[in-house]
Simulated assay, not measured.
Amino acid sequence: MLSANGPLPPERCNLSPRFQTTGMDFAGPFELKTSPLRKSSTIKAYVCVFVCFSVKAVHLELCSDLTSAAFQAAFARFVSRRGLPKKVMSDNGKNFLGASRAFELEFKEFVNNVAQDISEIPNLRV
């Protein structure tokens, strides 16, 4: 399939389960009222937008700010609802880069903690 600017990436042309390839970005800020009262204060909020590349389905998650921790929480909620995507694409926002580094560190710590336990498992015979 060709577009005016060249061929589309395969993720956009091939049929696959929803949210296997996901794009994401932030929208906002939006003003939210803290209560239904008339003179309640407002706070800034953002929306993390997840878009499925194959069927263009959209998943929205509310975020309190643009920090890496807020994004990690939004991504955890997305994964718990839609499943873990095989490929995630985004711009190089600081919150996305920070979250990527944090995920890599957590994975390395997990592997280091579990490596000893895995090496101690006796060989099972069937």
Rank of each mutant, 00 (worst) to 15 (best):
R18K: 08
E31H: 14
P17K: 12
V126C: 14
P122M: 10
F26C: 08
N113I: 06
F103N: 10
K86D: 05
T42C: 04
S35G: 09
R18Y: 06
M24S: 15
S100N: 15
S119T: 15
N123S: 10
S40F: 02
F110C: 13
A73E: 05
D65F: 06
L8C: 03
A76E: 09
P29A: 05
K44A: 08
R125P: 01
S16E: 15
V126H: 14
K56V: 00
V88A: 07
F53M: 13
F19C: 08
E109V: 06
L2D: 12
E61K: 06
L97K: 03
K44N: 08
L105E: 12
K86A: 14
V58P: 04
G98A: 06
A99I: 10
R38N: 04
T22P: 12
N95M: 01
L124E: 12
V79R: 07
F71L: 01
R12C: 07
R18L: 07
T67K: 05
E11K: 11
F103M: 15
I118T: 06
V126L: 11
R82P: 07
L66C: 03
L15A: 06
R125W: 10
F110Q: 00
A57T: 02
E106F: 08
M24N: 05
A73D: 05
S41M: 01
A57L: 00
V49R: 10
P122T: 05
Q116D: 11
R125I: 06
R12P: 01
D25M: 13
Y46T: 13
A27K: 14
Q72P: 00
V79S: 02
S100F: 03
A99K: 04
P9A: 09
V79T: 08
V114H: 00
C13I: 13
K39P: 00
N95G: 03
S90T: 09
N112D: 10
S3F: 03
G23V: 08
P85H: 07
G23K: 01
G6C: 09
F78S: 01
A27E: 11
C48H: 10
V88L: 09
E11T: 15
D117Q: 13
N92Y: 10
K108C: 13
A27P: 06
S100L: 15
T22V: 15
N5Q: 14
N92A: 11
R18Q: 06
F107C: 07
N5V: 09
L105C: 09
K56S: 00
G6D: 03
Q72C: 13
A76N: 03
K108S: 15
L32F: 13
R77G: 00
A45N: 05
A74L: 00
V47D: 10
K39Y: 09
S119Q: 14
G23R: 12
A74D: 05
L8F: 09
D91G: 00
F78H: 04
A45C: 14
E11C: 14
P7D: 10
L62C: 12
I121G: 02
